[in-house]
């Protein structure tokens, strides 16, 4: 029963949402596609009355740009490292957390705490932990005041077990790409754990206890129970956590700003750790909307493909 009064009332209630969505969501989608296919489109020049020809030059230029390839490599590398590590660690924590009674609530609360933080602010704390405080680092006049808590811990173990002193240049001037990536991986995994643990623990708690009772009657071993009962019954949540992990991973940006600042890399190598999102914003700030749009569409395409790939794999592996 559709009466006309309900009709206009519905549109009235929806009008604020629709107006805002048209301006800030629908129009941007259309406009981004338009700008991406206008060669070398620039907002500033467009305002000056210049016209642009239709073409795919934005895409070819972006894909050929060394900077873009670097950003793509950084993003992919961080994704490939952090998603599996954080998922496996979260699974391990969730399974063990689910198996205990005393302290369970307390530990669960502790593990959720990093979720409610500001990724820039805590990034600055991580930077402080990894940073070597000193002057003229990497030169002959090098003067180390304190090597930071992480280096002190490493040094402690190194001198105890091997007798050698050890100090790693993690993020300072002259630090290596590998060390930078290790720091970023540690921070991103630390940041990604709480959400994954929350989802996986919720999934574990909803598994029917009868399966485990049946397995116990049959005398099934722990490992077999884990792989044959827990993982299959948890697979929808695992798939969800992995898919959202990849989507989040491809949009990585603020955690790098948190640790390295807007330099996006050690002081002697700006933008070394820049990501896809960072590339888009740089192009935007240089009034290069055409290239920014092309990069954004490429990012969307990659996320779409990875998500579909994940869904395809999980269709075969996930048991609902």
């Amino acid at each position: 029963m559709v009466d006309s009064k309900q009709q206009w009332k519905a549109w009235l209630y929806l009008s604020p949402a629709i107006v805002l969505l048209l301006v800030f969501t629908v129009w941007p989608i259309i406009n981004t596609v338009r700008m991406a296919f206008l060669d070398n489109y620039s907002g500033l020049q467009a305002a000056g009355g210049e016209t642009f020809s239709f073409g795919i030059e934005n895409f070819t230029r972006v894909v050929k740009a060394r900077r873009f390839i670097d950003c793509l490599r950084n993003t992919m590398l961080l994704c490939v490292l952090t998603v599996p590590i954080s998922t496996m660690l979260a699974l391990l924590i969730a399974v063990t957390l689910n198996s205990i009674k005393p302290l369970q609530k307390t530990l669960q609360t502790i593990f959720f705490l990093p979720y409610v933080t500001n990724s820039i602010a805590i990034g600055m704390v991580f930077a402080a932990m990894f940073n070597i405080v000193g002057s003229f680092y990497g030169t002959d006049r090098q003067l180390v005041t304190t090597a930071g808590i992480i280096n002190n811990v490493i040094n402690f173990f190194s001198t105890t077990f091997t007798g050698k002193e050890a100090m790693v240049n993690w993020i300072n001037i002259g630090s290596a790409y590998r060390e930078n990536i290790i720091v970023m991986t540690v921070y991103i995994v630390w940041n990604a754990l709480p959400f994954k643990i929350l989802i996986l623990l919720g999934g574990l708690q909803s598994i029917n206890k009868q399966y485990y009772d049946a397995a116990r009657v049959d005398g099934t071993s722990r490992t077999r129970v884990f792989w044959r009962i827990t993982v299959p019954l948890l697979s929808p949540m695992l798939a969800y956590v992995i898919i959202t992990g990849f989507i989040g991973g491809f949009k990585e940006y603020t955690s790098i700003v948190g640790i390295f600042g807007e330099n996006m890399g050690p002081a002697n190598d700006r933008d070394r750790l820049n990501t896809m999102v960072g590339y888009i914003y740089d192009a935007l700030e240089n009034n290069n909307q055409g290239r920014a749009s092309a990069a954004a569409l490429i990012l969307f395409g990659i996320i779409l493909v990875v998500t579909l790939l994940n869904l395809y794999v999980s269709k075969k592996r996930v048991h609902y």
Partner: peptide
């Protein structure tokens, strides 16, 4: 409420959730 195109509109809204926010930002900035 019942109105014409309700399901279509709702599906359209849900579809926008898939698109990364960066895509909107470029135009919104302008």
């Amino acid at each position: 409420l019942e109105f014409k195109g309700k399901n279509l509109l709702f599906a359209g809204l849900l579809a926008t959730m898939m698109i990364p926010g960066e895509l909107f930002t470029i135009t919104n900035y302008t």
